[in-house]
Structure formats: C-alpha cells, structure tokens
Write a protein that binds this DNA or RNA. Structure first.
Lengths: 119, 119
DNA sequence: CGCATCAACTTTCCGATGCAAAGTACGCCG
DNA sequence: CGGCGTACTTTGCATCGGAAAGTTGATGCG
C-alpha cells in the first residue's frame, strides 16, 4: 500500500479532460449522426481555429473520425465518434462521476460540522 | 441570442479544471482541518515539485490559504480552503455535474444505434 | 567532529498546449 | 470583375504542467 492516493484520479486523461474537447465529445455523443464543422462550432461556442485544432487532436487520438467532403461545391467536414472514442469517453465519464461524488460529499462534510443526517 | 452553444461549459475554470488541482481541492474539501504538505502529497499522488507549484497557483487564485510554520524544528506547511475557494469549488462542481449528466444522457442516446431514419 | 542521509520544500527547465489572429481557397452575388 | 461570405488551416505566442535538480536544515553514524 505504498500508493493510497485516493484522490489521484489517474483516469482523467489529458486529451479528454479539456473544456473544448469535452464539449466536442459531449456534442458528438449526443448526436448519432455525424456533425458538420459549423454545427460543432455553434454547439461548442468555439472559434474556427480552435475547433480545427481540437478536432485534429481528437482525430490523432483516434477518438473521432473526420470526413472531408463536399456538399454541392462547398467543402463540408463532418465528424463522428469512433467506437473506441465512445468507449474512452464513457470511461472518462465514470471517473468524472466519481470525482463529483467524492467532491460533493467532501464539500458537504466540510461545509459545516455535523449535518443532520438525510434519511 | 447569438450564443446558443449548449455545450460550451463556460464554468469550467482553467484553474480548477485540472487534474492535480482538482485532486487537491477535493482533498482539502474533504478535510475540515488544514492538511500538511506531505499529506497532500500522499493523498493526491503528486511529486514535491508539482505539489509546490499547484499549491502556489491555488494560493495565487485565492482558493487556498497556505501557512508555513514549524513543527518542532522541521518546517511544516499546512493548507486549507478559503471560503471563496470552497464557494468556487462548489460552483465548479455544479458545472461538472451538469457535464456528466449531459454526457451520460448523450452516451446512452447514441449508444443504441436504432436511428429513426425513415427511408 | 565530519560526513552522508533524509525530509521538506523550491526553483529551473523544457516540451506541449490552448487560444487568437492571420491566412487560404472557393463559391456567390451584383 | 471584384468584393463578400463561408469554410477551414496555419502560425505565433505566452502559458502551463511535469520532471529533474537545487536548497536548507535536522539527524544518524563511525
């Protein structure tokens, strides 16, 4: 037991644990169909530059699949979660949930002394 | 109205939304009494250097209070949440919780693939 | 006493990163 | 033809997190 570290949260992968990317993944997870660049931009409130970059990171990590095509004559980039991406996202979420539980409990505990026990 | 961005999660403050710091804050929130440097190190699984740095950041941001004293002749640094720190932590947690809910729901939705694609 | 060791931090260094601003390419009015 | 808008990409920069090295002082040992 040289490593108790109950709050070390190793599962908070740096690729996922990032506002913009988290936002993107949530958007993608919520929509079974691929989403267009501009849709993601709107949904996540990102600038073009940042969206492009973060999508690149997610793709590199194998979390999303990006398809660059055309709609008529306009370029249209669409994006969807890969199965692995979905899996990792779910795993990450489990850790996040754990964090929230730990912390909420902790916050309650430290907030005032002994609280009335909820039923 | 120009900003729907339902997944933009503005509340994910960069100072709090960071593995090491999140870990520290959770530890601190869980313990009403101030914690010692070495305790935090153990609890969060951090190296000396990184702990020092992150504590500095948290202090600078007014989230924690650091007290440098002595226990006998050894230096003993202790640390506790400030009221503002606790408040911001709780607020951050609320956002996190929202993320988890959104995402869990999203993941469930996208999981089953029977999309209603009417020919 | 002198020296090596350990504990408790701090400081430095470096590659990676997020964000913003500028750049590119192309289709579409008028 | 020429400006405008959409759809992205690239570049630049300042910041950041993490590893390693440094500091200070107490303690054990021969």
């Amino acid at each position: 037991m040289s490593e108790p570290a109950p709050y070390a949260y190793d599962g908070l992968d740096r690729v996922l644990h990032e506002r913009a990317r988290l936002s993107l993944l949530t958007s993608l997870a919520a929509h079974p169909k691929p989403l267009a660049f501009s849709d993601l931009k709107q949904l996540c409130g990102l600038t073009d530059g940042n969206l492009s970059r973060h999508l690149g990171v997610l793709e590199e990590a194998g979390l999303v699949e990006i398809h660059k095509g055309y709609e008529g004559r306009r370029p249209l980039t669409t994006c969807r979660l890969t199965p692995a991406g979905r899996q990792r996202f779910v795993a990450y979420l489990a850790v996040l949930e754990r964090v929230v539980r730990d912390a909420a409990e902790a916050a309650r505990q430290g907030d005032r002394g002994p609280e009335p026990l909820p039923a």
